[in-house]
Amino acid sequence: MIFRYVILSALKNLQYERSVSAVYYLIQGKQSIQTIQDAHLFEIDKYYRITKYLNKKRFMKEIQLLEQELYLEAMPNENYYELTSKANEWLEKNESKMELWIVNGMRYHYIDDVFFERLLLTIQVWANFVKNERTYIPVIEKFEVKHWVKQYFINSKNNVAQLMKNLYEELAEILHSIDELYVEIFVLQLTSYKKYGLAKVQIAEKTGSPKEDIELMTLTVVHQILDKVDAEPTRFPILAHLKSDVTEEKQLTFSASKTKSLLQKGYTIEQVAQQRRLKENTIYDHIVEIAIHDQTFNIQSYMTTDERHDIIKAIQQVQSYSLKDIKQAVTENISYFQIRLVLASWNKYL
């Protein structure tokens, strides 16, 4: 149900200006300017990268089902769909239930996995240590996570029993404020001494929900823990430590950040392009990317005030974020690049 809700409400927010692929790229988390720009522009940034491991086949199957069950209606353009009245009613009916489901994909997508995996493995390592069990199969296989938890374990070795009590207190405090069903789904996945947590497919069978819903519900708990810990890190020292050194690497592509530093040094677009042996168009892309990530980025140097007003007016007039439509409604000397820049910082003008 949650998975469907996400697809339908994202599609609705996109105002039928994008194909269903845009929804897929959004929730799967494609790191393209277009996707990130869409996320901000259409205010669906909280859905960004919330189903990282979703494959396109599975997604398209759900779209097909939604069409068969008359929630979606195909539009003339290939892969464009419209919500039916049945879908709109359904969304409305489930709105209050969905209030429990809180995520913030744009904010936590780079950390939620790592944090949860470190938590899972740390609990397993501590529990086995306390029980004197030295040969067991770690529940997380990822190299980086195993390495990190090993280091943490070495540093915490002398105090494990106490730390486990503290971790219980920290988790219990946060989990109390979350819906019980969500919390249960989260807790059932934890692995302890000689007791492996349930697989997502097992919880899905148990609760009769699709696997994607279980993932999305787990994500709610993880994001809310991260929220609470971010607000008061000193109150939750263990949880804060588990997320301590994860940084968001990929906000800006490496190439765009290089461009950014050259621009900051005062080089013009042409100079940057020349120096980096790139096409000017690529530099334009970088600038749009920079503007999306940095809402304080000054776009004034790339257009006059009049040009900016002209673009804003055109967007309001055509009631669309389609580049083509906007371009037709502005004076001819305004470029696509300038329109994209205004769209990149559009939230400022609302």
């Binding site: 609990i123 529990a127 306390v130 029980k131 029993a161 486990m164 009590k165 971790l167 219980y168 988790l171 219990a172 989990l175 019980e180 919390v183 249960e184 989260f186 807790v187 059932l188 934890l190 692995t191 302890s192 001494y193 007791k195």
Partner: peptide, 17 residues
């Protein structure tokens, strides 16, 4: 069991001292 009991069991609360 309810989640508190489950969580306690996972973290071996009351099981170790």
């Amino acid at each position: 069991s309810d989640w508190q009991t489950l969580l306690k069991r996972v973290l071996l609360i009351g099981d170790i001292d």
